[in-house]
Design a protein around this nucleic acid. Structure first.
Lengths: 344, 344
DNA sequence: TTACTTTTTGCAATCGATTGCAATTTTAGT
DNA sequence: ACTAAAATTGCAATCGATTGCAAAAAGTAA
């Protein structure tokens, strides 16, 4: 029960009358050391309650076996799913995971990057914040060739592996579906265009409209930060439009929800009068009434994939011959908010 | 753009023709060093793009400025809120945060504890898994007096600061509310009793019943793991009971949701025929129809408080004179699932 | 036994920053 | 100018593990 000083390899060495280097090798199962002494060392270590001091090892080997994660907000279903996936793979590969949230602020994001660098993380997994428009805080990593993988909110300007959901196709399928269900005037509530994901969703929307021979009417497109209140603002604006939309494709489920709640208040029926599709498949989307049609993004799998790519890159050292952008499939989940007729 | 070797304090020292120790002190703003050289050192460091190697410092100072977190599952609103709160405080105090999920498995939890210990985290914040019934994996920390703080799923057997929500009062208020709304036969769907939180919620339920002069009928109490399917099982069982309950207090929102969905399927009206109250205030609870009355637990604040207590303990060194258990207030949120009459 | 491999083990430097104590320089006092 | 006190700076050990290379021990063949 008393506070004891940790046992080190030197303690073990002394006890066995051998050198610390032998102990070190023995503990690492180095074949240079005879089987018998290896066993002896390991048993003694166990018996003495030895715990390696990873920092010392890290300092020497210049590795930390730690992956840094930077993302906007932990407390969001999609992001926490990604973390969960990353942690899952990382843990099984012997990596620890350090997480920081930028709260969508550029300043904090930059400071976090500095800190993680000083902590010498072996690699970085990043989803940038909404406010982030400059990327010099990642130069630290590119210059020293610390592997990075971006996910979801990726940045074009940096060469690195990227994991994204198929936002374009998601946007396309969502819009196409709304059109098929009878929507002529399909509106879009989108996110800030400095983020590629929102540009892609918008592009999918526009293409689906054009291919269906429908006009892309800018008055039916609203951009904001996709918060709960933004959604309410947006639907209010859309309702004032001379041509009331038949359907709305929202770039996330939060605004889709806002829209639905506001329409309910206005006694406008969803989906009969206005149909709604969201994006991300938040847990609430399935259970709200009417349940929200949405695009599923495989967060957990994206996390797993990101961790996998990153660790691979850490292990092989040196730049990969070429960087890949992995596009994970998105899936349209059709629910009540966009089905006018019951399937026969 | 070429991979360069990091600049160290020795490089700075050489450049300025002074000793590394002076540089070290200068960088740390040690008043032993004259103001002018301090400034000179800092400017040169900046200019040379110096980044401290935190591992080296850690090794020497025997501190990591890192907090370890162990919890069952990251990907859960309550837990990710807690993480968010912890990260918030930790970041502002200059601590990094390392997170691992136990997936509710004892084995993994134990292994994580080992790893975090070897990584020499300065402190640990823990919510134990459902399967965890032994606690020897934390002895490592208690023996070496590494500060620990438990939250939510705390363990009685270990002396440490604890942060919990007021589960007892939450259970009490939920039940009392159901009784006030006219429930005579109030059922309870609870969690595994090896976890104190579920014992407390159950106790609150029982006391509320007794104080109202109602019988505590064991056939109206079901215990399971509170998953979605468990909830469905439970409500099916309760419906078969000779005395059909008027109301159900569920120990989490997930089962409350299951109950509501199943009752909807059975065309049993909520709240008119059976009322429901959940626990935790998941995001979906507010928006599902009928919206679910529930008990709010301040996850983010609990995280902040836990981090605060832990860091305080890390800084002051030595055992605190006594360990406190902080009970955070819970709040009954009354929604549609438990209100029979509209408020006049 | 001698000479030569092969197998084991140890020496000592290294990773980069921190810090007690000694040495040096500056300042102050007379 | 001389000494004591105060302010700066440097030396060298230290944190604990890793690793290239040399040294020692064990094994083999003649």
């Amino acid at each position: 029960m008393t506070k004891q000083t940790e046992t080190t390899i030197h303690d073990i060495a002394k006890r066995l009358n051998i050198s610390a280097s032998t102990v070190s090798r023995g503990l690492n199962d180095n074949p240079l050391i005879s089987k018998s002494t290896r066993l002896l060392i390991q048993l003694t270590a166990q018996e003495m309650g030895y715990r390696p001091n990873i920092m010392a090892a890290n300092l020497r080997t210049r590795k930390t076996n730690t992956i840094g994660i930077i993302l906007p907000l932990i407390n969001r279903h999609f992001f926490s799913s990604v973390i969960s996936g990353i942690e899952d793979v990382a843990y099984n590969c012997g990596f620890a995971v350090t997480i920081s949230q930028s709260n969508d602020q550029y300043e904090k994001e930059a400071k976090i990057a500095q800190t993680l660098f000083s902590n010498r993380v072996d690699g970085l997994i990043v989803s940038i914040g909404m406010q982030t428009k400059r990327f010099d805080h990642f130069r630290l990593f590119t210059e020293r060739e610390v592997p990075m993988v971006f996910f979801d909110r990726v940045v074009d300007e940096i060469e690195a592996h990227k994991i994204v959901a198929d936002d374009y196709l998601g946007g396309y399928k969502a819009t196409e579906h709304l059109i098929e269900q009878g929507g002529l005037w399909v509106a879009h509530i989108g996110g800030p265009l400095n983020l590629k994901i929102y540009r892609d969703r918008l592009a999918g929307y526009k293409d689906a409209m054009q291919i269906a021979g429908l006009p892309v009417d800018e008055s039916l497109i609203v951009h904001n930060s996709l918060t709960r209140t933004d959604g309410t603002q947006a639907i209010k604006k859309l309702l004032k439009n001379p041509q009331r939309p038949h359907a709305i494709f929202c770039a996330n489920d939060t605004t889709a929800l806002s829209v639905i709640l506001h329409l309910r208040e206005m006694r406008i029926k969803v989906p009969d009068e206005i149909m709604v599709v969201g994006f991300s498949n938040e847990p609430f989307s399935e259970v709200v009434t009417p349940s929200i049609s949405t695009i599923r993004q495989p967060g957990f799998e994206m996390g797993r994939k990101a961790a996998d790519l990153l660790i691979r890159q850490i292990r092989q050292k040196g730049k990969p011959s070429r960087y890949q952008t992995i596009v994970m499939p998105t899936e349209l989940i059709i629910r009540e908010s966009s089905t006018r007729r019951l399937p026969e």
